[in-house]
Computed example of a mutant assay.
Amino acid sequence: MVERHVLGISGGKDSAALAVWMRDKHPELDIDYFFTDTGEELPEVYEFLGRLEGYLGKPIVRLNPRRDFRFWLREYNHFLPSPQTRWCTRMLKLRPFEEWIKPWLAAGDKVVSYVAIRADEDYREGYSAKAPNLIVRLPFREAGVDKPGVVDILESSGVGYPKYYEWRSRSGCTFCFFQQKIEWVRLKEHHPEAYEEAKELEKDALEHGSPFTWSKGESLWDMEKPERIVEIKAEYEIRRARLRRSIPINPLRPVKECPEDIDDVYGEDEGGGACVVCHK
């Protein structure tokens, strides 16, 4: 029996930090790092993967689904993915991973999968193993590594953060439905062509009877109106200021932030709960 070790990279800070941490803490392990590419990723994600590969000293395997986002959009009757129906995660992230490790599991190999759930994320659960020889490990939770710890790992290693953290907190697909409204506005500002593409996908979905828009209760067409953009930015700054005032100050451990640490600043009808396999 062969023992294999795998670690999924989402393009976000937590999984990158775990890859750095495992390389430094467990150099004896031959870990296969992988990234499941939906074909709809931000360009900043690819740049960050290259930087991370330089630190790890080995390539990050790209798992490309045999069928892309638009294929599955048609299969799901042009209905956009949503928190209630996360077909994008299932078909574009989980299935390629399962197909990748399937031959190993069938051969009787033991596969250990490392997932970047932190010690301060009691509410999160990792991938549920479907085979007895697939073992899911949560090293950060086991070692007590929390969010400030992740920041320390990335900064001390010199890897840093993906550039999209300057304006967005979500990794994964460009069109992630878990984005806050402020992040959709910033997508329009930083990647206007991607925003236009998302609008067309939304229009197509609505024309086919989809009950969902990308952002709950508001279309991207309405969201991009100048007066609405002003409102969204103002509402975000109010929520952000309120959150900062609510954070207790610990002089023994100052809170360190990413360049744009907005993943806890939710507005009405804007939730967290992003898929672990995409966001971490």
Rank of each mutant, 00 (worst) to 15 (best):
Y55L: 10
E44F: 09
L52T: 06
W72P: 01
V20T: 09
V61Y: 02
F69L: 04
F35P: 03
G39L: 10
N77F: 04
V20H: 07
N77L: 08
E41C: 03
D30T: 10
L56W: 09
D32Q: 13
P27A: 06
I60K: 02
Y55C: 05
H26D: 12
K58M: 08
Y46K: 08
R66K: 14
R51I: 04
L63C: 02
L73H: 14
R62Q: 10
P59S: 13
P27H: 06
V20M: 14
L49V: 08
D32C: 11
D30P: 04
E75F: 09
R67E: 02
V45W: 04
E44S: 13
P43F: 02
D37G: 03
L73V: 05
Y55R: 10
R70C: 13
D37Y: 03
F48H: 14
G50E: 15
Y76R: 14
G39D: 11
G39Y: 12
Y33A: 06
D37K: 02
E47V: 09
R62W: 00
F48W: 06
M22W: 00
W72N: 01
P27D: 05
Y76T: 02
T38K: 04
R67N: 07
Y46C: 00
P59M: 06
R74E: 15
V45T: 15
E47P: 00
F71N: 00
Y76E: 10
I31E: 07
F34S: 09
Y46S: 11
V45H: 05
R51A: 05
L49M: 05
T38P: 10
E47R: 15
D24R: 13
R23D: 05
P43G: 05
N64L: 13
R67S: 03
V20P: 05
R23S: 12
R66T: 07
E47M: 07
W72G: 03
V61T: 13
L18H: 04
T36Y: 03
K25M: 10
L63R: 06
L18M: 15
D68L: 11
K58Q: 15
E28K: 01
L52A: 07
P59L: 10
E40M: 13
L73S: 04
P43W: 01
E40A: 10
Y33H: 11
E75S: 12
P59K: 13
E40C: 13
H26N: 14
F34I: 13
F34E: 08
L49W: 10
T38G: 08
Y55N: 02
D32R: 06
A19Y: 09
I60V: 11
L52H: 08
R51T: 06
V61K: 13
R23F: 00
V45Q: 07
A19K: 10
G39A: 04
K58S: 15
L56E: 11
D30K: 14
L63A: 04
A17N: 04
R74A: 15
H26M: 12
Y76A: 01
E28P: 04
L42E: 01
P65S: 11
E41R: 08
T36F: 00
K58T: 15
I31M: 06
R51W: 01
F71H: 15
L63K: 03
E28D: 14
V20Q: 12
E44G: 11
L56A: 06
L42Y: 11
N77H: 12
W21R: 08
V61G: 01
I60Y: 03
V45G: 01
E44N: 12
E44V: 09
A17E: 09
N64V: 15
